[in-house]
């Protein structure tokens, strides 16, 4: 099976306040349709790695491939396009644009991509919201819904352009067990029904155990995968 995402010898240093080797020789891959989780102690470099894998951080050594294409070294403009088209990202804190409605938040990345008409995008957005059981909130202001609902809106937004891979940095970190379970079920279903690849950082052992694979990090290095 081919790799959706591949990291080869990724190293990263922080220079402030003093030189700190935060990621050490990270090499691993995520297969198509695979649901992988990353675990590790706080400060082991999980978030730092995820920012690099999501192309937002370009200050590293090594090579990053997405769908077997080298991403490292591309211009910011090209990377924006790649993020827009192929990567869905869910944050620990459900970052939504608070002045826009739920459905507008979901539609925005698709409007930026500009491949579909507004009507099609709107239809897609409603479909994603329905899949996550929050269609009734579509026209609410994003600032006026609960945390669990916001997280699901963020997932819908990450999925709107049918990305190659969905990444999450502790997407359930701020949710109660019920909502956590809910999000896990959604991820599982996306993998099974749509063959989506997922890479999720989590501190929740139960969550991780039920994924296809656990990647363990310690002090900036992968110790098991």
């Amino acid at each position: 099976m081919s790799l959706v995402l591949e990291a080869k010898n990724i190293n990263k240093h922080f220079h402030q306040p003093k030189d700190f080797h935060v990621l050490k020789n990270i090499s691993f891959g995520v297969k198509e349709g695979e649901f992988a989780s990353i675990m590790g102690k706080s400060g082991s470099g999980k978030s730092t790695l995820l920012y690099i894998l999501s192309t937002m951080d370009t200050d590293y050594d090594g090579e990053l491939y997405l769908n077997n294409e080298l991403v490292t070294g591309k211009s910011h403009q090209q990377l924006s396009r790649i993020r827009n088209e192929s990567i869905g990202f869910v944050f620990q804190f459900h970052y939504l644009l608070s002045e826009f409605s739920v459905v507008e938040n979901v539609m925005l990345p698709a409007k930026k991509l500009g491949k579909k008409s507004i009507a099609e995008i709107e239809h897609d957005a409603h479909q994603k919201l329905a899949m996550l059981h929050i269609e009734h909130l579509a026209h609410q202001k994003a600032s006026r819904i609960s945390g669990g609902e916001k997280q699901r809106v963020a997932i819908a937004r990450a999925l709107i352009n049918d990305p190659a891979i969905l990444m999450g940095d502790e997407p359930t970190g701020n949710l109660d067990s019920h909502n956590s379970e809910n999000v896990f079920t959604i991820f599982k279903r996306l993998k099974e029904e749509q063959g989506l690849s997922l890479l999720v950082v989590t501190h929740d052992e139960d969550f991780a155990k039920r994924t296809d694979r656990i990647i363990e990090m310690e002090d900036g290095a992968i110790v098991k995968h």
């Binding site: 937002m56 910011h76 924006s80 993020r83 088209e85 990202f89 608070s98 991509l113």
Partner: peptide, 13 residues
């Protein structure tokens, strides 16, 4: 925060 979200979801600088 909005700017960061826009950039994370594929809007360029």
């Amino acid at each position: 925060k909005d700017i960061a979200i826009l950039k994370a979801t594929g809007f360029s600088g």
